[in-house]
Nucleic acid binder design. Sequence first.
RNA 1: GUCCCCAUCGUCUAGCCAGGCCCAGGACGUCAGGUUUUCAUCCUGAAAACAGGGGUUCAAAUCCCCUUGGGGACGCCA
Length: 533
Amino acid sequence: MTSRPVRVRFAPSPTGPLHVGGARTALYNFLYARATGGTFVLRIDDTDLARSTDESLQNILDGMRWLGLDWDEGPTRPGETESASRFGPYFQSLKFDRYREVVLDLRERGRAYPCFATAEEVEEGRQAMARETGVPMYDRRYRTLPRDEADARIAAGEPHVWRFATPLASDGGESRVVVHDAVKGDVEVDLKQIDDFVMLRNDGTPLYNLCSTVDDLDMEITDVVRGEEHFVNAVKQILLFRALEADVPRFAHLPLILGKDGKKLSKRVAQTNLLDYRDQGYPPEAIVNFLTLLGWSFDGEREIFSLDEAVRAFSIDKLGRSGSVFDEDKMIWMCGMYVRATPVDVLVDRVAPFLEDAGVLSKSAIAESRAFVENVVACHRERFDRYGEVPSKIAFLFADTVEYDAKALKNLRKSPETADWLLAFRGALEGVAVPPSWPDRPPEADALRLPEPVNDTANRGGGSSAFARPSELEAMARSLADRLGIGFGNLVAPLRAALTGAAGGAGLFDIVYLLGRERCVARIDAAIESLRS
RNA sequence: GUCCCCAUCGUCUAGCCAGGCCCAGGACGUCAGGUUUUCAUCCUGAAAACAGGGGUUCAAAUCCCCUUGGGGACGCCA
């Protein structure tokens, strides 16, 4: 087989938001194009004018860009037309004349005919066919209508659609079609199963199978990579390619992404709108990584890899044949892996919009206290997987008062002496240089990068900062516990409760350092107060 | 109902095409330990699968057939 350079397309219809299944289809097209040095085309299949919306188009383009799936040809920005190319336009709604032309051509070739059946007649025939053959389809009643009669009825303004005349064995035509599919292998389909499908609606607008085929032809698409639900369409399109005496592209029908219920992923069982993941702060790299693994495997061992690495390792014949369940737990785990691997400054950029939206920190506050915010995020990065989780995890640092959760309350009341211990700690605080509370922190307080390296003894306790670093605060607390004659945990648990309102969280002395003197003192006082009342 | 596809741990998968190296490897999740001031991270370990039945073969997760199970399609949607 002579192989032209690969040209693949992702062809969503802008009738709804980009679905995660669609995103994976786009991703595999992208990988295949990049892996083979081919071209990745984005085409907008907006033939259904009634259901297509600009909002959906925008959503699709945003989703593609968010994932980093850059296309070589296709629309640029909504409102703009498209990247200049001899293969455009990339909106099917701009090519209606072309499709109609093809239908007329098809009629000359004996493969298209007008059908005047009413909706009721079609339905009636459908039921009869279902009874007779088991296949509910149009009964082809207008297929043999003489041409002059058909033209007369058209001229008279009678409503009609244009149908494709599927080759029939009874007419001496071929009776089977073989789909050569990269994932399914060669699949033979009996044409008895194939309807005389509609190509042009009653209102003259074209339909999917026609447009898709014509565009794949016009755009010199070499490989059609799409979801398995399109498999039967491949047969219709092959018929169309042949009728047009054109080369048939290769096909690859991807197994579906399944929900926990084992059925095609739907919003009933999962979040299917790709951009919802963005809005909840899932790292896009993690989504891409995860989606890549749904039906393909890097090397059988490695789970975490970049899009570029996937491109280098990708091979279309390593695609799996069975559907895969969308496992949100694993995806969240993967998000966490990316969060922990992201440099702190980048991480803060990613997290910032979520902090702003939640009203925890304003954009200007983040900019002005950048080093402080980076330390806050760095101290919490092992405790969140998605950016959207951050505001609620760090809000306590900026609150005026804290509310104790059940476990914190328990820790606070564990011993009748906790109030005394807290008071002792409060007193000990007087003797150490705890940085002032935000926002009144001098820059040098946050020049120290947190969290401190655990095993870096050279860095711990050394240095000449004007402030006591967390490790020094910890040393202070340990000696205080010694003096009080209690275990370290007895001091630390209620202190954490008093300071954060929770039983878990970032390193306690990182928290003391970040919270600052005034807030620490106020919270300890508040805790003691509540213990006494 | 008709046609098509699929079938390895609960889940994602490697192995299957070119049978032996597989009493089946990795990952998520689960459970148990360890590290830690807590939670988390991290580390170690455990339980966990070739759907069933027939063949072919010296040898089958790997090839063939049947059964069962699951999924998809059957639009003047894409």
